[in-house]
Write a protein that binds this DNA or RNA. Structure first.
Length: 625
DNA sequence: CTAGGGTTAG
């Protein structure tokens, strides 16, 4: 052990270690190994006369790769610049590092490097290989981030041209990368053209097409490709996952079940990707029993899988289940991430367990998820739904970056709490902040108008939607307007708004009007609305109930009985209204005239006692305060 | 080179 080098790992060990730091994202260890290289320049000099030049080059390439994988474009570039000898792997690793630039900048960086590589290859004989092109294309594909998607299309076309020029036009892997990149850049047509031009296609090719079409919401195409593919090559779990993505997107329950059958037959039912996608299909289609069967059959759920079922619960009216499962997961120490937290926050609404909400917020702070916009938006909503407007505002003010949903959420929060004027101030701030109003923004604004009773302002808003903001109002917006007119007591105006409008299916609107009529006790318009609604939707329980209420208030008991009979004939039952209160982390719910609560006798005693006290002279007498 | 998840209105 005379010199330092004999204590060192050998070249092969070192490059392997550096590369694995890259794969694992261990920048600390990777940089420490880099320091070792720097400290022993004699051993790592990249010169033609070095006895182990090949091995030394591999070490340097590994360093570039390591920095690239750790998201350090600049450090990768510095290492690369110091290298006197380079090969295709050096270039490819540096190109891969461009993706950390993010957005369109990543693509232009990768293109610039590719250009440099092509120019220098004439002199130094470093030729591009197939990895060069798949790397550039995957950078272009990943650089996509919503808005900049179309601007990357030219970059893809340039690379496509170079692929052909450089003689890689027949490579399957490169064709696959082109297909993927074109889909990501928002051009399914170009992807399809590449696909049809490919002489050789493998599972990856087909899967890229199936998932690309599904993501582009071209579900028919996706299904057709899946069917066609099964005659050509064997599907793998990625293929099934992609086919299920199309089922989930198009709410195709039957197709989902069929693919489920194929999944079982092919033996992929224990694949987490497939299982998560299956649950997603079932819960989006409202088949929670089937989703739960998949859920229970899963042996090793991960955080994605759990996020899917949480969303399924909250979108199918099983919010309590979502809270329960989330608490169980956290209690069991299962890994959760920011997506899981956003999902559970989305369950707040129908019920709003404030104590749990605060605990989740604490967890978010502990886990450092506060940088995530989805998470913060979820908190804003959670607090406002729990009745804590101030907390909601505080989260909103302190969140690191806001998007349209953030603004929609805070506007809705103020609308929900009846602060109509604040709603419009926030709308102005939203625009000043550069956030684009969306259709939901206008729902929240109209909701705000209802609360201040400003029907005029509301109608202005409705008109400005399409004329100023280019957003077409949906039925929900019109329903909001009817609700607004109705709340303001302008029931006849609301009625003519519906009847004069060009609405194809106005059920939602009559329902809104009906609600307003029962609030104002206007039986005239109310009856009209209910009858209109029953014509459009004979299964609408609420319409029968309203009619029957109107008849009883008028003492027309025969008519009331007729309505109730009509309702029963349709096989309908009135929903029971419940009230609930949360005590000591437990939700107690009560139904009128029901003794279903285990302690209803004790509750009755206390109520009886309180009403006795209330009728006494001094209302405070006898209370233990 | 291909596959899974999150927030907003009612």
């Amino acid at each position: 052990m005379r010199d330092a080098s004999s204590r060192l790992l050998n070249y092969a060990h070192l490059s392997g270690l550096v590369a694995s730091c890259g794969r694992g994202g261990d920048l600390r260890l990777g940089a420490a190994l880099h320091a070792t290289v720097v400290k022993h320049p004699a051993h790592f000099r990249l010169c033609g006369d070095h006895p182990h030049l090949r091995h030394v080059l591999v070490v340097w390439n590994a360093l570039v790769y390591m920095y690239a994988r750790c998201g350090r474009r600049d450090d990768a570039g510095k290492v690369f610049d110091e290298m006197r000898v380079r090969d295709a792997v050096s270039w490819n690793s540096l190109i891969a590092a461009s993706s950390s630039r993010g957005g369109p900048a990543a693509a232009s960086d990768a293109l610039a490097l590719l250009g440099r590589m092509l120019r220098e290859s004439d002199r130094r004989a470093v030729a591009c290989d197939r990895a060069t092109f798949t790397t550039v294309l995957s950078v272009c594909a990943r650089a996509w981030s919503g808005a900049g998607a179309t601007s990357l299309l030219p970059a893809c076309r340039v690379v496509h041209g170079l692929v052909v020029t450089c003689g890689f036009g027949a490579e399957v892997a490169i064709g696959n990368a082109l297909v993927t990149a074109y889909f990501e850049c928002g051009s399914p047509a170009s992807a399809e053209r590449v696909f049809h031009g490919m002489g050789e296609k493998n599972v990856v090719t087909w899967t890229a097409m199936i998932s690309g079409m599904a993501r582009a919401e071209l579900y028919k195409e996706s299904f057709m490709l899946f069917r066609e593919m099964r005659r050509m090559v064997d599907a793998n779990s990625a293929t099934y996952s992609s086919a299920l993505l199309a089922c989930a997107g198009s709410l195709a329950a039957r197709e989902g079940q069929q693919v489920h059958g194929l999944v079982v037959k092919a033996g992929f039912e224990a694949d987490l990707h497939v299982e998560s996608e299956l649950m997603d299909v079932y819960s989006k289609c409202g088949l929670m029993d089937d989703a739960l069967t998949v859920f229970r059959s899963c042996r090793e759920p991960d955080e994605v899988f759990l996020t899917v079922i949480l969303v399924g619960f909250s979108q199918n009216g099983m919010e309590e289940k979502a809270f329960e499962l989330f608490a169980e997961m956290v209690g069991a120490g299962i890994d959760i991430d920011d997506n899981t937290v956003s999902a559970v926050l989305g369950a707040f609404g129908a019920s709003a367990p404030f104590a749990l909400g605060k605990q989740i917020h604490a967890l978010i702070i502990k886990k450092c998820f506060g940088w995530n916009t989805y998470v913060c938006n979820g908190l804003v909503n959670m607090y406002s739904k729990c009745g804590e407007l101030r907390e909601s505002v505080q989260v909103f003010d302190e969140m690191p970056s806001k998007n349209s949903v953030s603004w929609n959420s805070i506007i809705a929060a103020f609308a929900r709490h009846g602060h109509g004027l604040e709603v419009f101030r926030l709308f102005e701030s939203m625009k000043a902040d550069g956030a684009k109003p969306t259709d939901v923004t206008f729902l929240a604004l109209l909701h705000g108008c209802s609360h201040v009773g400003s029907a005029k302002k509301g109608l202005e808003i409705l008109n400005s939607m399409s004329s100023q903001y280019g957003i077409l109002p949906r039925m929900e917006h019109y329903a909001c307007v009817v609700d607004m007119l109705g709340r303001a007591g302008l029931l006849d105006d609301a009625k003519s708004f519906i009847e004069d409008g060009p609405f194809v299916d106005s059920a939602l609107l009559w329902q809104a009007l009906m609600g307003a009529c029962s609030f104002h006790g206007n039986s005239e318009v109310g009856k009209h609305a209910a009858e209109k609604l029953l014509l459009l939707d004979p299964n609408c329980t609420a319409a029968y109930v309203l009619l029957s209420n109107i008849y009883s208030s008028e003492g027309r008991w025969d008519d009331k009985a007729k309505v109730m009979k009509r309702m029963r004939k349709m096989g309908l039952k009135k929903d029971t209204g419940k009230s609930w209160i949360e005590l000591e982390k437990e939700v107690h719910s009560f139904v009128i005239r029901s003794t279903s609560h285990p302690e209803s006798a004790a509750v009755d005693d206390v109520l009886h006692h309180l009403s006795t006290v209330a009728s006494d002279q001094d209302p405070m007498e006898g209370t233990a305060l």
